[in-house]
Design a protein around this nucleic acid. Structure first.
Lengths: 225, 225
DNA sequence: TTGTATCCATGTATATTTCATAAATTCGCT
DNA sequence: AGCGAATTTATGAAATATACATGGATACAA
């Protein structure tokens, strides 16, 4: 099930969001400030964080940047909650790595709709109908990858590698970046390990999907319109 | 280059959006109603459509759904422009397949920021370093060089060399500076190595781009804008 | 056992560098 | 200026180095 963490210092807001999120079938958690939010984040690993910008202590921007630097949470969705006038926050927030933002006062129906749109973009909820054009749908929730309606299970490392590459089609991930994001900074593995995992991925999802950029790294192919 | 189509019935809005989009380096097109927008869509295949919801004739929702059903345009980004109060439109718009929406009155900086966030999510653009030069775009994110819409891949040393020269068009880089920046201080290579790489670059990106300053080094030609 | 992850040895493609020679430019001299 | 010599860069081809793909081996755990 998709889980959502709300970080906001106003109790009323937390309550109303939790209520609506649960009503929609999400797992909902709340924290009243950035520090407590970070604690919860490390234990529950939510799929989405709703993050108030203006908070005492760590503000939303700081929390957002901290999340982006936490290993394993780089792909957590982040949505800012901003007061109507805070244009600067909007820009800074998106640049800080947020995926979206919603202006206060928050209308629950709008928020839910935006959340669903975000999840859909990440392939985290089943889209009703999918195009049979060979595109991949990556379901992080279940460690499944779907291609043309056919689902396949991938081992953890292969899945993480694929999810990383596919998160930004066209972007070239350098080998050391891949090592850091998929294996972590502390683990030491040989250079050939990446190749081997790429090979297995290619065997499973098809040859054309992952391209080698010699001397640099790998990329997931862009869509050809 | 990323191209954007604006569909809005208000001329003022169209003008201001076109102006700002072009200033940011996008290819910008405009249409004054849904029908004309659809015509343009089929010919220019834009990457992103900015779509007014309330329009005489086809409204934004209808256009959005029509776009999603056009072969080849399923993945075109769609961003709605909505009046502040139209909550229903917001929800319907996102459900109709829009990727985002921006409320009027539109603040150009906010809009541009949102556009970039959308493109980034699709991996379509990287704001990093490009030479503001119309003819050659160096995309470090994708390790690609684009010339007149045609993309090419360069090997590592050639790419780094080109990126260095193009980072300051008109500036003459001395040979030892090039060696230091591209090859590093510890590596020792013969002097002819630079020439050979320059030659390969010229073969690939065209003869006129890199000029030799005999006895000193090389420079990337300045643009005559 | 089966599935997963890593490593190793080898082959192969390609990137990079070197080299010999030609062409271009600069310099020194009258 | 003109002319040849010296210096510097361009060019073609070949040699070397590097990075990746691949098949298979190993280790370990469920």
């Amino acid at each position: 099930m998709v889980s959502v963490l709300v970080i906001d210092d106003e109790e009323d807001i937390r309550d109303i969001l939790i209520y609506n999120l649960k009503k929609e079938g999400f797992n909902a958690y709340a924290a009243e400030n950035g520090e407590k939010g970070m604690e919860l984040l490390k234990s529950v690993h939510p799929d989405l964080v709703l993050l108030d910008v203006m908070m005492p202590g760590m503000d939303g921007i700081e929390v957002c940047e901290a999340i982006r630097n936490l290993p394993g949470l780089e792909r957590t969705l982040i949505c800012f909650l901003t007061a109507r006038s805070e244009d600067y926050s909007q820009i800074a927030g998106l640049d800080a790595g947020a995926d979206d933002y919603v202006s206060k006062p928050i209308k629950p129906k709008v928020l839910i709709s935006r959340i669903k749109a975000m999840l859909r973009r990440k392939g985290m909820v089943e889209p009703e109908e999918k195009s049979a054009d060979g595109r991949l749908v990556i379901n992080r929730d279940k460690y499944l990858v779907e291609r043309n309606g056919e689902v396949m299970h991938l081992p953890r490392k292969e899945f993480e590698l694929l999810a990383l590459l596919a998160s930004r089609p066209g972007h070239v991930f350098e080998r050391d970046v891949i090592l850091e994001k998929v294996w972590g900074t502390d683990i030491v593995v040989g250079d050939r390990t990446i190749d081997v995992h790429v090979r297995k991925l290619r065997e499973k999802i098809g040859e054309g999907m992952i391209k080698t950029i010699k001397g640099i790294g790998y990329k997931f192919v862009e869509q050809l319109s």
